[in-house]
């Protein structure tokens, strides 16, 4: 089955494919699309970005597919959320890829959650409380202020990895900083009417959005993080909502909408299906705009 000639042919094939590979740009492996978009803005044409997931996938549950190992193998920079969000797949990719540049402690290992404070840090680590993250809630990309800090840190990382192009990264960062702060001011003005609105959520994915826009979460459909809504829990939520009416129900488009639809039918509370991350044909800016306009549409 394995005669020596075939073996040699295989090795030659592997090396010829390797030789074709060019190293002129920084290869970036982004765990989620929001970081892919951010690093694209800051890196411009000096980076080639791959996103391991799409907005329609659950970043908690991704399989360490062969294609992802191949991408990790070639990465010069890894940018992920951290805070255990990718604990189910990233460690395996790192171990299997044999790539030293993106290991913990290396400049090419960038965990966004390392640079900002996290909300909802649990006091007690007990699995009967659901899928809790010891470091706090990892869904930080829904706060533009945190994005800004992460962008600053990411610029430093890019300059460290690729010092030849540090002027480009610095210029991109300054222009991003200006545009993004103006955008934040605009968004905060536009969303005045959303302050204090009562929301029901499917999973506690919106903590940072709530914190930013001052939304008030009155109920969560999952009884515990990561545990699917049970009928008993839903009945309880329904009873609570009769006492304390909510303004809207939020869920991410990658999540199962069965419980959400059921509750909407019973209560006639409007449902907002928000994209949980940047889609392939838009930028970080456009995605924020889209989320805000969806929320504001409900209010009118």
């Amino acid at each position: 089955m394995f005669n020596p000639i075939k073996k040699h042919l295989f090795i030659m094939l592997a090396f010829s494919l390797w030789a074709n590979n060019s190293h002129s740009v920084i290869n970036v492996f982004a765990c989620e699309p929001e970081w892919a978009s951010l690093v694209q803005i800051l890196g411009g044409d000096k980076v080639s970005v791959f996103s391991a997931t799409t907005a329609l996938q659950d970043p908690h549950h991704i399989q360490a597919r062969p294609s992802l190992i191949a991408k990790t193998r070639r990465a010069d920079l890894l940018i992920c959320t951290g805070a255990e969000l990718e604990a189910g797949w990233l460690p395996l990719l790192l171990r299997k890829s044999g790539n030293g540049k993106i290991l913990t402690g290396q400049p090419g290992h960038f965990m966004s959650a390392d640079h900002v404070t996290l909300l909802e840090k649990p006091k007690l680590l007990d699995r009967s409380l659901g899928d809790v993250h010891a470091d706090g809630n990892p869904h930080i990309h829904l706060d533009p202020h945190r994005i800004m800090i992460i962008a600053g840190a990411l610029t430093k990382t890019l300059s460290l990895i690729d010092p030849d192009n540090q002027n480009d990264y610095q210029n991109n960062w300054i222009s991003f900083k200006n545009t993004w702060s103006r955008a934040i001011t605009n968004w905060e003005q536009q969303s005045q009417s959303l302050r204090g609105k009562k929301i029901v959520v499917n999973h506690n994915s919106w903590v940072y959005l709530e914190d930013w826009l001052k939304l008030e979460r009155v109920a969560t459909l999952e009884p515990k993080p990561g545990i699917a809504p049970s009928s008993a829990h839903l009945t309880q939520v329904l009873a609570e909502l009769k006492q304390n009416q909510a303004d809207m129900i939020l869920y991410a488009t990658y999540q199962n909408d069965k419980a959400v639809r059921w509750l909407a039918d019973k209560t006639h509370i409007p449902v907002v299906a928000l994209p949980f991350s940047v889609s392939s044909d838009e930028t970080l800016f456009q995605w924020y705009e889209r989320i805000l306009s969806q929320l504001l549409d409900i209010k009118q």
């Binding site: 992920c80 969000l85 790192l94 965990m111 640079h115 404070t117 945190r146």
Partner: peptide
């Protein structure tokens, strides 16, 4: 919201 001290955190 910026962290005062960076704790190195892995995906593990």
């Amino acid at each position: 919201v910026e962290k005062t001290k960076n704790t190195s955190r892995t995906g593990q």
